[in-house]
Design a protein around this nucleic acid. Sequence first.
DNA 1: TAAAGTAGGTACTTAAAAGTAACCAGTGCA
DNA 2: TGCACTGGTTACTTTTAAGTACCTACTTTA
Lengths: 137, 137
Amino acid sequence: MVTSASLPKTAAPGPGGERHECPVDAVLRLLMGPWTTYILYVLRTQGPRRFGELKREVGGISAKVLTERLRMLEEARLVHRDYQATIPPQVTYSLASRGAELNPMLDALKDIALRWQSEDAQAVSQQAMASIRQAAE
Amino acid sequence: MVTSASLPKTAAPGPGGERHECPVDAVLRLLMGPWTTYILYVLRTQGPRRFGELKREVGGISAKVLTERLRMLEEARLVHRDYQATIPPQVTYSLASRGAELNPMLDALKDIALRWQSEDAQAVSQQAMASIRQAAE
DNA sequence: TAAAGTAGGTACTTAAAAGTAACCAGTGCA
DNA sequence: TGCACTGGTTACTTTTAAGTACCTACTTTA
């Protein structure tokens, strides 16, 4: 068993026990599942969306998982849920202020990710060129 | 099935199919599993470490999962593996330059995470105070 | 002689997450 | 009349990830 006192503040301790010690990990756990960043991306770029619209735009997601994700994001106050008890009911989801707070971080992450991707693509194409040259000998 | 052409560049497409479309998601997938950020944290703050040391410092992790994570981080070139074929063999892991590139992003994420954590703690304590006042009436 | 440490690998089990399909109420539309 | 739309919920199945335990080969130490 891991003694929590011995763990640094940014630790992600054992899966069984005392999880929510590291705030960084807590935020990463919000973003990590499949679909989550995609949902946030749609709300960021397309603006507020109703449940059905969201489900159609995030093509392939099931209603169950979309509901789970939205509930989780709502609980973390990253998105806001507006329920109108009309018939049929009208539920609109929008990015809350906390969602917008993530933007600079996500943009920085995007810069890194794109740079690495192009570096890797370059490395792969160079490898391919090398093996073509080798085959030509 | 989702047509990849219809997906925005930051999409995290269906779990079955074409995953590695979104570079942001690709990086998040590196960081997300349990232990991963912890391993990087140890290498960032403590410097290069051997396998056994790492296993002891990341208390509670199994050799299997530590190996998996290190292999994944090595393949993504976040971590460098130095193998010395001595007897017994000596394997040292260190943070590669790509690992250091993540630092600004992780620091920004840490700022957000800590702010949210303290905000939430404050909200919880205010709620507790309110229910105490209510009980006192 | 036997245990402990080196850096893992392999097989099996378990638990969590995701996917699939059916269903709800109430109304509009053909 | 019967299907589709609204925003989900529930039960069931499948997939995936993680955990546990045991194994290697060689050396040092007690």
